[in-house]
Simulated assay, not measured.
Amino acid sequence: MVVSLSQKCIAEFFGTFVLVFMGCGSAVVAGGHVGFLGIAFAFGLSVVTMAYAVGHISGCHLNPAITISLWSTGKISGKDAGGYIISQIIGGIVAAALLYFIAQGKADYSLAANGLGANGVEEGSPDHYSLISGLVAETVLTAIFLVVVHGSTSKNNQNGMFAGLAIGLCLTMIHIVGIPITGVSVNPARSIGPALFVGGAAISHLWVFIVGPIVGGLLGGGIWKLYDSN
């Protein structure tokens, strides 16, 4: 089956929309009911379900850090990478906009008090971790994530049919550890959407959730190449 770039971009838009809407939605709408563990699983399950829904179309990146890492290892062309990243960011923004609209249907909802699932450091961190701690955590967690992405989708991996499950569970694992630090991004598109609506510190610290994941993604790709010749 020949898949056009426009079809791939639509798949990336939709998949990223679902990831941000469900993941951030679990924090904004259901956080008080499910807690950090429930939020972690919402993000992980979003990736698992989208892997099998759009993975055969676009590869289900849903994340500029993944796309850049795969581009750096020659798994995707620059043209496709550019289209993917734009689609992912737009998907995240549309998801945040819809989530904000729905959240306002609750009488006591306040953007300032309840947020929109934006990532943060210092006062914006759930447990008030420093900017440096947040940047290091985002870099390391993304590197781990990308080693799993590269490894589970490698041609040398005989269990490739379970790649979506492995990647989703890895994202869940990362969130279980990382939510208290930054709320967990490891994905610039996931951070950009909510930050645009929340503003303030979410915007001023947004660079942490762009630079950290991109650097971590490149590190993860480099680590994978050290032991896998795919």
Rank of each mutant, 00 (worst) to 15 (best):
M22F: 11
V94F: 14
G59Y: 14
I68L: 15
C60E: 10
P64A: 10
V28P: 07
S87G: 00
H56S: 15
F17K: 05
G74F: 07
I76T: 11
W71G: 02
F14L: 13
I39K: 06
E12H: 06
I93P: 08
G59T: 14
G78H: 04
V29D: 02
C9S: 02
V54N: 00
G44D: 01
A51T: 11
Y84M: 00
W71P: 01
L37Y: 12
K79C: 04
L19R: 03
C60R: 04
H61A: 15
D80E: 15
H33D: 12
I10E: 00
W71L: 15
L5C: 03
T49A: 14
G59R: 12
S77R: 05
Q7L: 02
F13L: 11
V20M: 07
F43I: 01
V29M: 12
S69Q: 09
V48D: 00
T73G: 14
V18E: 01
A42G: 03
G78N: 04
S87E: 01
G83N: 02
S72F: 09
T49W: 03
F36K: 15
M50D: 05
C9E: 00
G91Y: 02
T49R: 01
S26Y: 05
C60Y: 06
I86W: 06
V34Y: 07
G83K: 03
T16E: 11
L5D: 08
A42P: 02
S46L: 04
F17D: 03
G55L: 06
K8A: 08
G83T: 04
I90P: 08
I57F: 03
G78M: 09
A30V: 07
V54M: 00
A81V: 07
H33P: 03
L5M: 09
G59A: 13
I39Q: 11
G31K: 12
Q7P: 02
G25T: 10
F43L: 02
F13W: 04
G55W: 06
H56P: 06
K8Y: 03
M22V: 14
S77W: 06
A30M: 15
L62M: 15
I93R: 11
L62F: 15
G92F: 06
C24S: 13
F14P: 00
L45R: 01
S46D: 08
K8P: 03
M22E: 04
H56T: 12
G25Y: 08
S77L: 06
V20D: 04
I93T: 12
G32R: 08
L62D: 02
H33M: 14
A65N: 05
S46H: 07
G25F: 09
A95Q: 08
G32V: 14
I10V: 13
T16K: 09
V34A: 10
Q88L: 09
I68A: 01
V48W: 00
F14M: 06
I89R: 03
F13S: 04
S46I: 08
G25A: 08
S72Q: 03
T49F: 12
G35V: 14
I68N: 00
T67E: 13
F13P: 04
H56F: 14
Y84A: 00
F41A: 10
G25W: 07
